[in-house]
Structure formats: C-alpha cells, structure tokens
Design a protein around this nucleic acid. Sequence first.
DNA 1: TGCTTAATGTACCGATAGGTATAATAAGCT
DNA 2: AGCTTATTATACCTATCGGTACATTAAGCA
Lengths: 196, 196
Amino acid sequence: MGRHREFDPDEALQIALQVFRRRGYEGTSISDLTEAMGITRPSLYAAFGNKEDLFRRTLDLYEHQHLCFAREALQAQTARDAVERLLRGYVEVLTDPMSPPGCLGVNGAVACSEANEAIREELIARRMVNENNLLDRLERARSDGDFPGDEVPADWARYVVSVGLGMAVRAASGASREELHRVVDVAMRAWPTAIR
Amino acid sequence: MGRHREFDPDEALQIALQVFRRRGYEGTSISDLTEAMGITRPSLYAAFGNKEDLFRRTLDLYEHQHLCFAREALQAQTARDAVERLLRGYVEVLTDPMSPPGCLGVNGAVACSEANEAIREELIARRMVNENNLLDRLERARSDGDFPGDEVPADWARYVVSVGLGMAVRAASGASREELHRVVDVAMRAWPTAIR
DNA sequence: TGCTTAATGTACCGATAGGTATAATAAGCT
DNA sequence: AGCTTATTATACCTATCGGTACATTAAGCA
C-alpha cells in the first residue's frame, strides 16, 4: 500500500558504493550521493537511514561483491598459495577498471576525523576480521606442517595485510595493476621455507 | 615598523603540524587550527596565507623535522642496511609518542576529495621523490655489486615504499611500535642475496 | 469513489566550512 | 607629539554540511 518507490535501492546502493569509494566517507556529501543516485534527499534518508547507515550498507555490499574472493583464496592447497591469491586478488579489486581505484575500507579509514570515529573503528574492526581469518589459515598450515613451526603466524598475517594496505594507498594514488603485481612478486620473496 | 606579532610563527607551525597530523588535511578546520595555535583567524591568514599554504608549510616542517633520517639512512654501507634503516626509522616516526600516530603525508592523501586535488597531487609527488631517492641508492648499489644485477631496482623501491605506506595506515589505526618493527622483520626477509 | 499509506519535490533548519572587511591597537620613524 | 605600518579583535560574508517539515503525488484497498 502507498506510492511505489521510483528507484531501485540495489542500483542506488551500487552507485553509492562507487561514490564513497572515490571520495571516501567524509569526502562524500549527501548532495554527491543524491546527484549520482538520481534521487532526492528525503528519498535517500527514507530508504537508507542516515549517511552512516548508508555507508555501512555500502561496506557490506563491497565485501560481498568485491572482497568475496578472499574466502576462496584462503582455501588454496598451501598457505603460500593462499597468501599469494589473497594479494593478487586484492590487486585486481584495487585496480578494477570499472570502479574508482583503491579500497573503500582504506580510503574511508585513514583520514577520518574524530567526528566520525565510529566509522573509523568500524573499518578497523572489519580489517581485523580479515587479518584474523588469514591468521587462522596460517595456524592451520603450521599444524599441517605446511608452515614452519618456528615462525610466528601473527607476524606473517600482519605483514601480508600491511602489504595489502600499502598497495591500497598506491592504487588510490593511481598505481597500475602491473606495478602492484610486481609489489606482490617482491613481497612473496619473503615467504619462509621449511629448510633454513 | 608596525605592531609586533604577538605569537611565534615557528611555534604556531609546530602546533599546526600536530593538528594536521591528527586530523588530516580535510578533517582539520581553520577553527581547529586557530584554537590550538591560540591565535585568531586573521592572524593565521596574515601569517600563513590560506589553509593550503599553511598545510604546505607544515609538510615542509614535517619533512625537515621528522623525515630527515631518510637522508642518513640511505648513506648506510650496504643497500640492505639502508633499506632497513629507512623502514625502522619510519616506524619510529609513525609511532612517535610525542606526536599523533601515523604519517602526515599518508593521512592527508588517501581520502582527499577532488575538491582538494592539488593537495593530493602534491603529496603523491613528494612521496615519489622519496621513492626515487631510494631507487637511485639501489641503482648505485647494483653498480657497486652490492645488489644483484638480475634484480630490478624499481621493483624493490616500490615494494619498500609500499610496506612503509601499509605501516603508516596501521599506525594511524593504533598499531604499536613493536608490531610495526615485526612487520619490518618479515619485510626484510624478502631481501635478495647474490647467490640464488 | 473515497480513504489510507508511502514515496516524492520543495524548501528549509541550525551548524559549520573557508575566508575577509573593518576598526581598534601597538610599534618604529621623523 | 604625529604619521605610518603591521598586527590584532570583532563581526561578518557566502557556500555547504547533514538532516528534516510539509505539502503533494501515486499507489492499494474498501
């Protein structure tokens, strides 16, 4: 009952994702969003709550749509292969020609003033989930004998995520896909072998 | 001739650096700055031009005061040592207990809306200068036989800077100095040996 | 055909953004 | 002292921020 919505919320959310990804959370204004989505302010607020709610929705969409490769990557046969797939998959996302370069999560969190500390903490927490997933995989690998027993998995998970974050910054600055794959090439040279 | 300035521009610039470093370029308002500096708006504009000019001044100060270790680091005996000093020195800056965590350059550049693209490009250019200094050092090392001839220095310079950027993001998210040094530990494991 | 309900378009809210006009003030110079 | 000059303090500018009140429009239901 009542008037029908004249726009597709899923399509609108896709556009919001593009805008937030290009401009970051604080750099995006409600007017930026409504113009790009082709809807009015009250329609946006009625459909998505407030700016913070909308951003969280776009984060969910981003993870399900662009970061989903990580689950599969972690299921690779070896820990080394899992990590390389993780990094290379992330490079593809960061330099997807159909989207603004860089990572929604990283672009949003870095230069977030304390006025929006809730968002900052949310992004840090989500990043930590990914790091912990990788950590679990490395610990499993160590039990399997696939990862040296004298290495500290947490140190490696932290390293891998750090390399990813660095590439995200570079991507946002216009780095090419090839450049970032060469970063992965070098980063993987650190990988430990059982024989030392 | 004329009335004397009642504040020390150098001191004021130090405070501006702290504020910009904590809040980023766009996240810092003129009111944030004048309150912290203890001066009025017209005094700020008279002494430093506009917000963008002031930010560039703080960038200069930041580089001369906090990033100056890089020059010395690059003069180390071996390329490997130079790179390790570079990364460890950067960790110290990122987690300096006397300053807000993270890097002024990184925090400012990542989520900068295109309204301030001039600043974004300035920061990217300054970062590129540092990467090129490292690149020059690695190429010199290769001439000296201190770096394998079959390695591509540009790939390694890019890798090292990327690790630095990743650590900068982590630092801004609250990473400890110890955590970041462990990232350097792992990152240096990639370093190439002449015998392969 | 009303009646209800929900989405729309317009126009607005107070707060804050970066930046400035203007007048009062304090110094050096003659 | 009186003039000039540069810095202050107050008050204001326009534009935009996130968010909303309100009247209008379009749909389903009786």
